[in-house]
Design a protein around this nucleic acid. Structure first.
Lengths: 317, 317
DNA sequence: TTGTAGGCGTTATCAG
DNA sequence: CTGATAACGCCTACAA
């Protein structure tokens, strides 16, 4: 029995039936498995896709991941996800060390788009798709959202529900979504007396702290609606308000952005603007596969339209 | 400049200073990166750990992952996580295809422990640590929990808060935690008239459906407390009860198991039994590293003690 | 201290 | 249709 025959049979190439059988039998007998490292070395690719995010603890990224799985399904590619989880912006280091053999394609959704990171991405030895709004000059495939549109959707909705003083609770302004959403709100509210609060992280904890600041305001200053830059912040506000005995939405309407799975579970259920994380993941996977099969095609772009999901936190039915 | 010198410098072996400098300069210039596949082939290991779970969408597994990251940090190992996400019990297939070169160690937390899966695990060509309660005869490292203790903690607590009729909402009985927690409850409640409901999945949706069944009960039969087999089910119950205008905890007390991050965010905050997912992840990573350095040591076991976290859903302060 | 050469397990080419 | 053989890129004796 020769090495070459084994390789052929296991890769589904033509072979005489009895040879095929003998090989299969022997492989089963010995528990033989092809060595993925060697195959990857020889072929120059191991059908391995990596998803890199800052914090897989955030439900948004779990959903993004589900989408990537959807988009990859049937292609035979394996997905491995890398999350720094601890230090933000360790992503740069992660990307730099992503040599061939570890991954053959990368989907990345970076909170902070430092120029260092972008350079690593452009120079990457493997195909890259970015989930986020890049500058047009960056020659990279990307899946984008209309941040300004998302904020506007929520803002107009709050107004239409009768809110007179809408406060904005933003995330860290040094992050891409943090700054985009903040800018969008300022744009909209420049003629209203909208109050703006900025927090240190996109977390429930930060949302609760933001609530405390809001609650300390004088009666006249206090908002009757809050637009939060993401759902975790919104949930923190909601939690704070409810604990303080403030009725939602009667005394305070609250809306978030992202429409995470838990948004509908909360009580009152959270009104939110869906950014279709799952679909974005799917699109990213498709772009990546296209890029892997056609490495020198011009950069592509997909844009996803935000959608308002009205629930109890802004509108008691 | 010779290949060997490059290899030596890049791996931190001794070399003359000026050689070192020249190599580094050239590497930076050319953007050279060692090919991980080739290195892995030669060395027989790529410092790559895989975490396999049924559904990374479940917050429990996100926390487990954080723990594995904690336990791995400083070891230089990379973590990649594999989630079937779609078909339950595709884990078997995943494990069977996990040849050398893809991963050098595996942490797995299977919902269903089919004998097929266990066989794959025992025969695996790479070290394996199981997060879950294996039969003692299975020669595998494992991180365990005291399921019966966890259920008892919640049950006794509900009793001590004055609950007279405690209903149990269980998960799928064909899963390991589903069956263990159900058995534990039956054991405890055999002399009480505790009602038992079994659901098809450990999800919020299933919890809501279970609430509908509970709500359809006659006044006399209706429970005054619910013990749910996990927090997602508990949240579903909570959501259902609140929507129906039932006061929690005054008319219905609700307790869950897992103590997911969102448990404290919910309003009323959910009483739950912590199974310390993050610590279990950390322990699993430690066991795995030990196993990788000492492949033929006898199987080890760690057990984590559950802890009751009392919050508003059982006890209005 | 540096260079040369062999082989890790696989696939692809080329004779038989 | 099958068997021998040459790379893939790396690390590591061993020789210089």
């Amino acid at each position: 029995m020769s090495i070459a025959s084994v390789s052929r049979v296991l890769n589904g190439k033509a072979a005489r039936p009895d040879t095929t059988d003998r090989v299969r039998a022997a492989a089963a007998e010995l528990g033989y498995l092809p060595d993925a490292a060697a195959r990857s070395l020889k072929l120059g690719s191991g059908r391995q896709v990596t998803l890199a995010v800052d914090d897989i603890g955030n439900p948004v990224y779990s959903e993004l991941m589900q989408g990537v799985v959807d988009g990859l399904s049937g292609s035979g590619a394996r997905l491995s996800i890398a999350s720094t989880g601890q230090e933000p912006s360790e992503l740069s280091a992660l990307v730099r060390n992503l040599s061939r053999g570890l991954a053959d394609g990368l989907v990345i959704s970076p909170l902070r788009r430092s120029s260092e990171l972008l350079r690593s991405l452009v120079d990457s030895p493997i195909p890259v798709v970015v989930v986020g709004n890049l500058a047009d000059a960056v020659p990279l495939d990307s899946v984008r959202i209309d941040s300004a549109g998302a904020v506007r959707l929520a803002y107009r909705h709050l107004q239409s529900m009768g809110a007179a003083r809408i406060a904005f609770v933003g995330g860290p302004p040094d992050t891409a979504p943090g700054s985009a959403r903040l800018t969008a709100f300022r744009q909209l509210a420049q003629h209203d007396d909208g109050r703006v609060l900025v927090t240190g992280s996109f977390t429930v904890r930060s949302g609760e702290r933001a609530w405390n600041k809001l609650a300390a305001l004088s009666k006249a200053e206090r908002p009757d609606a809050v637009l939060a830059a993401n759902d975790l912040l919104a949930l923190g506000i909601l939690r704070g308000a409810l604990s303080a005995g403030v009725a939602v939405p009667e005394q305070l309407a609250v809306a978030g952005i992202d429409d995470i799975t838990f948004a509908r579970v909360f009580s009152p259920a959270l009104t939110s603007v869906s950014l279709r994380s799952r679909e974005r993941g799917r699109l990213a996977a498709e772009l990546l596969q296209h890029r892997m099969s056609e490495p020198s095609a011009p950069p592509q772009m997909r844009t996803v339209t935000p959608r308002l999901v009205v629930r109890e936190s802004t509108c008691r039915s």
